[in-house]
Design a binder for these strands. Sequence first.
DNA 1: CCTATACCCAATTGAATTAGTAGGGAATTA
DNA 2: TAATTCCCTACTAATTCAATTGGGTATAGG
Lengths: 132, 132
Amino acid sequence: MKMTTKGRYGLRAMVELARYYEKEEFISLKSISQKQGIPENYLERLLAKLRKASLVETHRGTQGGYRISRSPEEINVYDILFAVGEAIYLVECTNNKSLCHMQDYCPSNVVWSKMAQQIEDVAKKTYLDELI
Amino acid sequence: MKMTTKGRYGLRAMVELARYYEKEEFISLKSISQKQGIPENYLERLLAKLRKASLVETHRGTQGGYRISRSPEEINVYDILFAVGEAIYLVECTNNKSLCHMQDYCPSNVVWSKMAQQIEDVAKKTYLDELI
DNA sequence: CCTATACCCAATTGAATTAGTAGGGAATTA
DNA sequence: TAATTCCCTACTAATTCAATTGGGTATAGG
Ligand code: FES
Ligand code: FES
């Protein structure tokens, strides 16, 4: 039961960007990738998703880069996980009932769903400004 | 972020066994594996771990099999996950600080730890008797 | 206008972990 | 003594995740 790099790297990148919110300057991919020790091209794809979700904005060319597009107070961890495509369920059955071995009611699923719900709650309650 | 089959199968097997607690009879591996749709040889390994953790007891030969060794009221989901070796942390860093990219303090880790704690709480609060 | 910068994007490969299989052994009962 | 059923280790297959490759396009500055 582990978070994938999508979620891990995604949050770390956003925390990094959130630090520069006030300055309004763009931070290059290279800079983020070096500071956070994340492969450049891999991180690039995550930032692309974050951009499509309007959590960051970009600017090309010299002095270009990425910056957070809203105040850190308005972005929570759930937004980030959702944007990068980190799934928040613990067993497939929770999402896709047809995959479940028990057709009608699965006792185990009660537990897995409850856990997933808790995770989601933490993610939704935690905003970026609390992390910097 | 998914639970592995260790946890999934493990809990399902235990729920199955818990149903027969009153009868005190042994249930064969074959029977559990068929009812739950879990590969026999794979499940066997999980049951071996559950036995080593004293959550189930076994008997060989004809009419032999597995049975739960304590009342379902006394076994919680955490016991089971721990026994089968399902890790309850979401990022490696939470367990092994030396793997963490940020030496002293990692903002992200605050979130991952909190989530893991929630999962652990649910696991510890949920007893088998509530699931049957 | 031209060049360096830096984001943009798809496809592929590589690595790691997980899931499942195979097969021989030992205890118990009828 | 034969059938049953747990016991145990090693191996293989499958899947998923992580990372790389390599080319493209917009922008700014000289
Ligand atoms: S078999 Fe699907 S959650 Fe139980
Ligand atoms: S890098 Fe280890 S939890 Fe942040």
